[in-house]
Design a protein around this nucleic acid. Structure first.
Lengths: 329, 329
DNA sequence: CTGAAAGCGCTAACAA
DNA sequence: TTGTTAGCGCTTTCAG
């Protein structure tokens, strides 16, 4: 059924029906007639037809590198909450860390499919920059800072610095580091820099043999720990860029008689649920993922409302969560 | 820019452009002209305008109770993979376990917003039934079996039965149970029934004092364990409906000197990443979440293609993963 | 294989 | 406030 058929059944004009579903510039009796007919017929206006004229999709595109990650799903929940309150739905694209898919979804959203875009990505390239600046709808990047665009990000540098400092303040002298791809500015580079700053500030130096780059996974953390701990140099504290990496490393420690925190303190970033139940509860830096999602959504909403091109950057702070893995006297 | 402007620039007819983006019933020279103009202008056809005529949205609605759950995000990843290959995007609604939101998204999808719907829900009511049968597009339910509709589900009964039996076979005589809401047929009722069957089959009886209903969370598992283990009766094995609940219960055990598996064996369902790194690695039943998502998507695809109303039910089997928490000699 | 032209269902400008 | 009507950008007959 379409709007004219329905209008006829309801006994009102087409525009009355349209107004009912939009601004509501409408007399009460007509409103009642329409509601009655609605009950009977179950008529629903077509979104796409509406969009053709009004150019409003009430859809926001969300591009993310994976779904089954605690941090990312929390961000997405935050986004959905705020946007849902404003009547927006999420068009979700999971790129599975595939660069091409990331690019092609950006392309996809250049069509008139969505009213705005939120992008969670780890590595930004020139192609990103060029596509993002060609974007016809407001766009917000969450979790990274990318010059010239709206961003909501965490203080990754500070998080890594504080966690490393915490361990060094407890007397560790041989700090080790397992991070991620430094092309990932937030989780890779900034956390590395935070670690390094804490180390040098403590009058120590960063030992390259005690530094490794892992993937975002437990297994990778396990591998890197294995390689690192098989060497001559034995670290007495370990900073990991993510909880998953830390949990893998700790698994290796357990299997090989390295006692935490006595032989080795371990600290990470992310404060995942997993960290709480590890065989040695993991000290970690809590990042406000859900809040980041909410704020990203808010930023997008105001950009969509105002249509303004001024870009904003919001950085969220962190909380240190101390648990047993750094509990050395 | 619209199709006629673009057609003019390209020097071809409007229908040629339309055909280019659709079936491709087109001569090579016109094709080349269009491609050249495409390079120059960056023209993209409007999805919504297309949808108004063709009734095809290339969108699938996915309704889920939460995002930050390992099982659910895996299912969603599976769905996205398969549907993405066929050029569909996901319109995601996170109901946050809010019944009204679940109902209203079903309503939403009765409009012509999507070509199909995949529903992950825990509790099904008569209202669900009535809305689902009024659905104008194919619908698939994943994770639950709901009579009269397309379903992809797990063998929850078998999973719980096997895990409980595993523990009883190792000599446990006082089985305890922490489950979830029995209105949730899959995770609540069926896992309970599986547990009960294993117990009675072993010639034992189910002690109501050793049975509890928890929420889907670690904290809730902790609480229930606390209450249960403060009583007179001491269980010697514990089956939990989910890994999260088990991890909470185990946390309580650790704090209270209950040794796993010597004092208490623990088994659960879900095989989450967390279970592997718990202070005592958790025996759990692996359910094929991602596969469930993939199969759900496949089922939806064929329903959308065929337009047939015949409904199908697919049940996926499980794997027992034995770890230390049940490793009693 | 092609182009002209008639809609798809709706919104918004306009005249009343 | 209301109803009429001209499009929104595209697909899809239909006649060539």
């Amino acid at each position: 059924m379409n709007i004219s058929e329905f209008a006829e059944i309801a006994g009102v004009s087409v525009s009355a029906v349209s107004r009912y579903f939009n601004n509501g510039y409408l007399a009460d009796d007509k409103r009642a007639l329409i509601e009655a007919a609605l009950e009977k017929t179950g008529y629903m206006p077509s979104y796409s037809a509406r969009t053709v004229r009004s150019k409003v999709t009430k859809l926001v595109g969300v591009i993310l590198p994976k779904l089954s990650s605690e941090s990312i799903s929390r961000v997405t929940e935050g986004i959905g909450e705020v946007l849902g309150e404003e009547g927006f739905e999420l068009l979700l694209v999971n790129t599975a860390n595939d660069y091409n898919r990331e690019i092609s979804s950006l392309e996809l959203f250049r069509q008139n499919r969505v009213d705005g875009v939120i992008l969670l990505a780890s590595v930004f390239t020139d192609l990103h920059r060029s596509l993002l600046s060609k974007m016809r709808v407001p766009t917000v990047i969450v979790g990274q800072q990318f010059k010239g665009f709206n961003c909501v990000c965490h203080n990754d540098f500070g998080a890594a610095y504080s966690m490393t400092k915490l361990m060094l303040d407890k007397g560790a002298k041989h700090p080790a580091f397992i991070g991620v791809n430094p092309d990932d500015i937030a989780a890779g580079r900034d956390r590395r820099l935070g670690f390094e700053k804490a180390v040098t500030e403590a009058g120590l130096s960063v030992d390259p043999k005690l530094c490794a780059i892992a993937k975002f996974s437990m297994d990778s953390g396990y591998d890197k720990a294995k390689r690192m701990f098989s060497g001559r140099k034995r670290p007495d504290c370990l900073f990991c860029a993510t909880d998953s990496i830390a949990s893998g490393a700790m698994l290796y420690c357990r299997e090989n008689g390295i006692t935490i925190p006595d032989d080795l303190m371990v600290g990470a970033v992310g404060d995942s649920r997993m960290g709480r139940v590890l065989y040695v509860p993991l000290s970690s830096v809590h990042l406000h993922y859900k809040t980041a999602g909410r704020e990203g959504a808010n930023m997008l909403l105001s950009a969509m409302k105002s249509g303004s091109d001024v870009h904003r950057v919001m950085q969220l702070e962190y909380d240190i969560i101390e648990r047993e893995s750094t509990n050395r006297v």
